[in-house]
Amino acid sequence: MPLTINGTDHDFTGDPRTTLLDFLREDCGLTGTKKGCDHGQCGACTVLVNGQRINSCLTLAVMHEGDEVTTIEDFGTAEELHPLQAAFVRHDGYQCGYCTPGQICSAKAMLDEAASGWASFVSEDLSAPGRLTPEEIRERMSGNLCRCGAYSNIVDAITEVLEAGR
């Protein structure tokens, strides 16, 4: 079974050591997904696999036969931005831009997780975590480091999209 990336089938036949991240960047030319630490410690490589966000550096391409991978390239183009991307631009939710695709993939998945009722460590009530407060967004986005320190604007950008969708 092929691996589907942004709707396109790919057959992986390379070195089994190849991470999903390196496969995306080096073999598929999808360099929007970034390598920041290569050890699951920064979140820059966040992509969606079957709709869930993961660190693509800590998984092997060979393990993803039949999976559907979504990267930043599937969100929107520079000319036609996805609402999250547009909100990041408007709120200056980035500076150097290196963590940004990971932040946006992560934010997308976070909104879906919250819609499914998933709780976080800061949720008062595990069974009914309620709406995404700024505190909830901060905890849920803590797997994406931003050394430029754009966190406050990132939270504002996501909040705007969240409220627009309500």
Partner: peptide
Amino acid sequence: PVLARAILAGATFQLRNK
């Protein structure tokens, strides 16, 4: 709930998804 809380205290959503 102690188990859910402990899991949610560890790592990140990305890591816990794997």
